[in-house]
């Protein structure tokens, strides 16, 4: 049994235009000490999938089915008070925007110690010591001084490190990081990614990393799930995925990177993502796909095994290259 198991998860939202299906029939697992990347372009459902775990979705408009278990315990039906405990202790989240995720009216030290005292029941003194150790853990120089500072006094990179420190304060089993470095400069990003790597190595934290950046995936993830139009289209270990991308969408994403230019041109993916309002019984990628054939329009390909630990949802997957 894996630490976290998501089985047949489907998430929709009620909107004025009708039910928008953000995630459709996703299944995935996360092991202890593993970094799993959820990648894909905007609107593919990667954030919604991950946020279904701590149930951080608007409760009155969300339509969710399927199962999410942490250590075998079902989370989707857990009463809200118990869920609150899970959110504080077992599953924590780091968001993209470090400025808006910190409370501007309290010092950094207060915000970390508050979490420790509430969830771990530590004394003020013990919490202060732990907080100092945490700031050190996430690579903040002169942590004692930083404790007294307020969020606006910190740079973007430092704020994101503080967010990570707060997120790991109660040693969560699962850390969800939603585009944690997207708002940061590239020279700062490298350091923050190192913090995640370090957390996994030292504390064994399992991490779900939501990102659109294949470079970040290649740098830090063990395994990756590529999502398109709410579904997982490919899933593999990172080395396998980049060496042998089977799904034409995955391959398209890799070839569209500016560094992959051939003869002064980039490979484009023509067309647009289908509307999340409809769900015809066909491959969602078929009208953008260079390998499309008749069967792609007749039924939807399921995720099937391509190689050891490598799944792809395509009738005409690319072969070993």
């Amino acid at each position: 049994m894996s630490l976290l198991e998501i089985t047949d998860l489907t998430v929709g939202f009620d909107t004025e235009d009708g039910l928008v299906q953000a995630v459709r029939n996703i299944s995935l697992t996360l092991d202890e000490g593993e970094i799993l990347a959820l990648c894909g372009e905007s609107g593919c459902g990667k954030s919604v999938t991950a946020m279904s775990v701590p149930r951080l979705l608007p409760p009155d408009t969300t339509r969710l089915s399927g199962s999410v278990t942490l250590d075998g315990r079902e989370l989707t039906t857990l009463p809200e008070p118990d869920m609150r405990h899970v959110r504080g202790k077992d599953v924590s989240v780091v968001f993209q925007e470090p400025m808006t995720s910190l409370n501007p009216s309290f010092s950094v030290g207060y915000q970390i110690t508050e979490v420790l005292r509430r969830h771990e029941g530590l004394s003020r003194r013990a919490a202060g010591e732990r907080a100092l150790a945490l700031l050190e853990l996430v690579g903040i120089p002169a942590p004692a001084r930083r404790m007294k500072e307020y969020p606006h006094q910190l740079s973007g990179g430092m704020r994101q490190r503080v967010m990570i420190a707060i997120a790991v304060a109660c040693s969560p089993r699962v850390l969800i990081a939603d585009e944690p470095t997207t708002a940061l400069d590239v020279t700062i990003q490298a350091g923050v990614l190192d913090v995640f790597r370090d957390l996994r190595d030292r504390l064994g934290t399992a991490i779900i990393l939501i990102t659109h950046d294949l470079g970040v995936v290649a740098d830090i993830a063990d395994r990756a799930v590529v999502m398109y139009a709410g579904r997982a289209v490919e899933q593999a270990t990172v080395t396998e995925l980049f060496a042998n991308p089977r799904h034409p969408y995955t391959l398209g994403l890799m070839k569209a990177l500016p560094t992959a230019a051939v003869g002064g041109r980039l490979a484009e993916i023509p067309g647009m993502v289908p509307s999340p309002l409809s769900d015809p019984d066909e491959c969602a990628f078929h009208d953008r796909c260079p390998r499309v054939q008749t069967d792609c329009r007749l039924s939807r390909p399921q995720l099937v095994r391509q190689a050891e630990g490598h799944l792809a949802a395509c009738f005409h997957p690319g072969g070993q290259s």
Partner: peptide
């Protein structure tokens, strides 16, 4: 610092921190 989309190469690169 800019990561390259190739895990083998990316993990061998010497990065200037």
């Amino acid at each position: 610092a800019a990561p390259v989309a190739d895990p083998v190469r990316q993990r061998e690169r010497r990065r200037i921190v």
